[in-house]
């Protein structure tokens, strides 16, 4: 019977601490009252997952919030599973989701019913760059060499590796096809790391990996960056390979390939959350941006560090949605109504 008794004691203690937690909720500013959940609508080890887990580490290490932060991967249906979960958690002040381009591409390509308008925008943390990479053993020293080689060969000679199907990498590939007038074979892989290794192994001819996915192979002299799909050069000047820096990579536009693409790394919350909670997380993210660990992640991955919140952020997202819609429509990636 003593077991039962001690269990009762535990029960009362839990009840009591619960009451304390309730009464301790301060009236002045909103504070999280239980663990904060960050949903990653992608698998473990990808760019979004790495960013979420790094932030989890930074927040814990610098004690930026009193409650623990939990990272949960919901990658099913090209991330649709994660977005649906957030869409259906109306008013949950303790749930955040980190997005990648599948915020736009998944509903368009699969017909899974969600949109950014079903969620509450919190903050844009950064924009991820895309770079055109080739194997360093190949003779293409510049974008012009590579484009000339593509143009000289028949359709479907050059293989492009990328992450997923009908997502950002394939959108860029379609844009490249338009610019060169030749078809490429697009081979989808499961993750950015695997894509880079396929290029190092010579199983594809080029990739459009994010900087962080391919930088290790560049430093080792296995890969060569040709150009960056942004309107301006990257603003990082540490030497990476020989005397080359991120800043030495020309923009694709200046090389005659008029293609630009940036990917959102930002946060959303479920619909109907309180303004105070959103403000709290914005403040927390601002503190994250000041830490040395975050700055290191940004320079390692050559991120574009644009930070946006509120209406400015919502406006950016709305514009990007339109851009994706027209890009995907043009490429024939929209879901047929049959499934």
């Amino acid at each position: 019977m003593s077991v039962t008794k001690s269990l009762f004691t535990i029960g009362t203690a839990a009840l009591a601490s619960g009451l304390i937690m309730l009464s301790a909720a301060p009236a002045k500013a909103w504070e999280p009252s239980h663990p904060i959940e960050i949903i990653v609508p992608a698998g473990t080890g990808g760019g979004a997952d790495q960013m979420a887990r790094t932030m989890q580490g930074i927040i814990t290490k610098h004690n930026l919030t009193k409650q623990p932060v939990v990272v949960v991967n919901k990658s099913g249906g090209a991330g649709g599973e994660g977005f649906l979960d957030v869409k259906n958690s109306k008013g949950n002040d303790h749930k955040l989701i980190i997005t990648l381009s599948n915020l736009f591409t998944t509903p368009l390509a699969t017909g899974i019913p969600f949109s950014w308008k079903d969620m509450t925008p919190v903050a844009m943390m950064a924009l991820d760059e895309f770079i055109l990479w080739v194997n360093a053993d190949k003779p293409y020293k510049t974008t012009k060499d590579f484009v000339a080689a593509i143009k000289a060969a028949p359709d479907n000679t050059f293989k492009m590796g990328g992450t997923g199907s009908k997502q950002e990498d394939q959108i860029i590939t379609v844009a490249l096809q338009k610019a060169t007038g030749k078809k490429m074979i697009y081979i989808p892989q499961s993750g950015g790391g695997a894509v880079a290794v396929q290029l190092v192994g010579g199983h594809v001819d080029s990739t459009v990996n994010n900087p962080i996915e391919a930088v290790a192979h560049w430093r080792a002299g296995k890969l060569r960056p040709l150009c960056v799909f942004d309107s301006k050069k990257l603003d990082y000047n540490e030497k990476i390979q020989g005397d080359l820096t991120w800043n030495s990579i020309p923009t694709c536009k200046s090389e005659g390939l008029d293609v630009e693409y940036l990917m959102l790394r930002g946060y959303f919350m479920p619909p109907g959350v309180s303004k105070e909670a959103v403000a709290y997380y914005v403040e927390m993210f601002k503190k994250v941006r000041e830490t040395p660990e975050w700055k290191k992640l940004m320079s390692d991955g050559a991120f574009n560090t644009t930070f946006m919140v509120g209406d400015e952020y919502a406006k950016w997202v709305a514009e990007n949605e339109k851009i994706h819609e027209s890009l995907m429509k043009e490429a024939g990636f929209l879901a047929s109504k049959s499934n």
Binding site: G77, A78, A109, T110, G164, S165, K166, Q170, P188
Partner: peptide, 9 residues
Amino acid sequence: GLDQMTGQL
């Protein structure tokens, strides 16, 4: 579920 090759459900 999702077909990785075509991005279709």
